[in-house]
């Protein structure tokens, strides 16, 4: 199963593969969307430039994963990104949650602590996945993972720097960060899970087993948690707001989809 050389796929492998690809694509797509809402609102101008660069990379990764789905006959990348209902989406619920109170154009009071923790924890999980995917049995996915990984190094460094700095700062920062950590972990299981076809995905060698990836995430994060005097037990990982891998989502996603596909929906058949 190296190249999509027009040989028919074993249907069981194909459904496991597409399930994984939808998770990867939808995760990056919705988080990049949330990042784009932050545009112009970051704590300082330098951060605005850096954050929008990261969101742009992330949107580019989503496009690469959607392209793999298109190559497998799932539809064209723009209808995959813009034309699917919330119930068809497989992103983790954590990644669809609003940035904070208010609308991105007028009254936004976005929570920077939530942005830092969500992005840092997610990017580390994504890094673990990409490292594993480099050995995927599906070569086109392994190739994409290699490209994505090059940019992730900087994303991870960026968010880790913010995380450590804000955790160690005095004043309001620590309690705000701890509240954000609690919120993120309350739905972090939804990021780590490979969904209903998780076993099949691992058995076919598309990526390693969910539990191994989770342990690797903890292994990578523990020294950082220790350095900022934080203890995190995996017993608090949960999916309080639903399992996105099963198509369970919140009203936040419905609102996001109607915004991000507003122009596309004017005429989905038109060339834009």
């Amino acid at each position: 199963m190296n190249k999509p050389d027009n040989k028919p796929f074993d249907p069981a492998i194909k459904s496991a593969l597409t399930a994984l690809l939808y998770q990867l694509a939808d995760d990056d797509f919705i988080l990049a969307y949330r990042g784009s809402e932050w545009l112009g609102l970051a704590p300082h101008i330098e951060e605005d430039v850096a954050f929008s660069s990261i969101s742009q990379d992330t949107m580019g990764h989503a496009a690469m994963f959607y392209q793999l789905l298109e190559d497998l006959g799932e539809g064209n990348i723009d209808s995959l990104a813009h034309g699917r209902e919330a119930s068809e989406r497989k992103n983790a619920v954590l990644l669809e949650m609003v940035n904070g109170p208010g609308h991105y154009l007028s009254t936004a009071q976005y929570d920077w602590a939530f942005a830092v923790v969500r992005n840092y924890f997610y990017v580390q999980a994504k890094k673990v996945r990409m490292d594993s995917l480099k050995n995927s049995s599906y070569q086109p996915l392994a190739d994409v993972a290699l490209k994505v990984n090059m940019e992730l190094y900087y994303h991870l460094l960026h968010w880790k720097t913010w995380f450590v700095q804000l955790m160690q700062a005095g004043g309001e920062a620590r309690p705000r960060m701890e509240a954000a950590i609690k919120k993120v972990l309350g739905d972090f299981e939804g990021v780590l899970t490979l969904g209903p076809l998780g076993n099949e995905i691992a058995e076919h060698g598309l990526i390693e087993a969910e539990e191994r990836l989770k342990q690797r995430w903890l292994f990578m994060m523990e020294p950082v948690f220790e350095s900022v005097n934080l203890s995190v037990s995996e017993s608090v990982f949960a999916m309080k707001n639903g399992n996105g891998r099963k198509g369970e989502h919140t009203a936040d996603l419905d609102a996001a989809l109607s915004t991000l596909s507003e122009v596309y929906n004017v005429d989905p058949a038109a060339s834009w």
Binding site: S36, L39, A62, A63, D78, Y104, L260, E262, V263, V266
Partner: peptide
């Protein structure tokens, strides 16, 4: 228009 751009290419 950044979040609303009508295709992945335009969004990027």
């Amino acid at each position: 228009w950044v979040p609303k751009a009508p295709s992945l290419k335009r969004k990027l």
